[in-house]
Amino acid sequence: MAPEYIIDGLFSTKSDVYSFGVLVLEIVSGKRNRAFSHRDHHFSLLGHAWTFFNEEQWLDIVDACMKESINLPEVKRSIHVGLLCVQRSPEDRPSMSEVHMMLSSEWALPQPKKPGFFTERDLVGESSSSTNSNNKGLSISKFSVSEVDPR
């Protein structure tokens, strides 16, 4: 989901563009954004793709099963367009008609900005002080839940 929808509840056609960008990056990488993990960092798939793309290591984003049979310029362009679609601010994202033009032409593309939700995640069990080996990544809450019944 687009950052503006999660934070402010605002939805627009640019929210759909964001979702399209996530989908493009998931297809190219062969990984799901929600379940993505990497041994060297805790970025989401979007942060991972943006970091590697900016370091010009964009081929490391591509699913290993696809690397032998891909059209390199098309895949690089797809990653680039996907990153333009997931930029944090809706105003920075292209419209879907612009996305279509970007994917079907060879004109120069602007440099993408950081995607929404770029921050590193703190994965449960790796740095939590409330976790021990018996909990296997679960934390224990000391709060109780009370149901309130109207009179």
Rank of each mutant, 00 (worst) to 15 (best):
M1R: 06
M1Q: 15
M1V: 11
A2R: 03
E4V: 10
E4H: 08
Y5I: 05
G9P: 04
S12P: 06
S12C: 13
S12G: 14
T13Q: 12
K14I: 05
S15P: 14
F20P: 02
F20E: 04
F20N: 04
F20V: 05
G21F: 00
V22S: 06
V22K: 03
L23W: 06
V24S: 02
L25D: 00
E26D: 12
V28M: 06
S29K: 01
K31V: 02
R32E: 08
R34E: 01
A35H: 01
H38G: 05
H38I: 02
H38T: 02
H38W: 04
R39T: 15
D40T: 08
D40W: 04
H41V: 02
H42R: 09
S44W: 00
H48Y: 13
A49R: 01
W50Q: 00
T51N: 11
F52A: 03
Q57P: 09
W58S: 07
L59K: 13
D60R: 09
I61W: 02
C65Q: 13
M66N: 13
M66D: 15
K67W: 14
K67R: 11
S69F: 14
I70Y: 08
I70N: 03
N71M: 13
N71Q: 12
P73I: 09
P73D: 10
E74T: 15
E74L: 15
V75F: 14
K76E: 15
S78R: 08
G82V: 00
L83E: 00
C85L: 06
V86N: 00
Q87P: 00
S89I: 04
E91M: 14
E91D: 14
D92R: 14
D92G: 10
R93W: 03
R93Y: 07
P94K: 01
S95Q: 13
V99F: 09
V99I: 14
H100Y: 12
H100P: 05
H100I: 09
M101Q: 14
M101L: 08
M101C: 07
M101H: 11
L103D: 03
S105N: 06
E106K: 15
L109I: 02
L109Q: 04
P110E: 11
P110S: 14
P110V: 14
P112N: 05
K113P: 05
K113T: 08
K113E: 08
P115D: 04
G116Q: 02
F117M: 08
F117E: 01
D122C: 08
V124S: 12
V124L: 14
V124Y: 09
G125F: 00
E126L: 04
S127H: 07
S127Y: 12
S127P: 11
S127D: 13
S128F: 01
S130F: 00
T131F: 00
N132P: 11
N132M: 06
N134F: 07
N135A: 09
N135E: 09
K136P: 11
G137A: 08
G137N: 06
L138T: 06
L138Q: 12
L138K: 08
S139M: 07
S139E: 15
I140Q: 01
S141R: 05
K142A: 15
S144Q: 14
S144M: 06
S146G: 10
S146N: 11
E147N: 13
V148N: 10
P150M: 11
R151H: 10
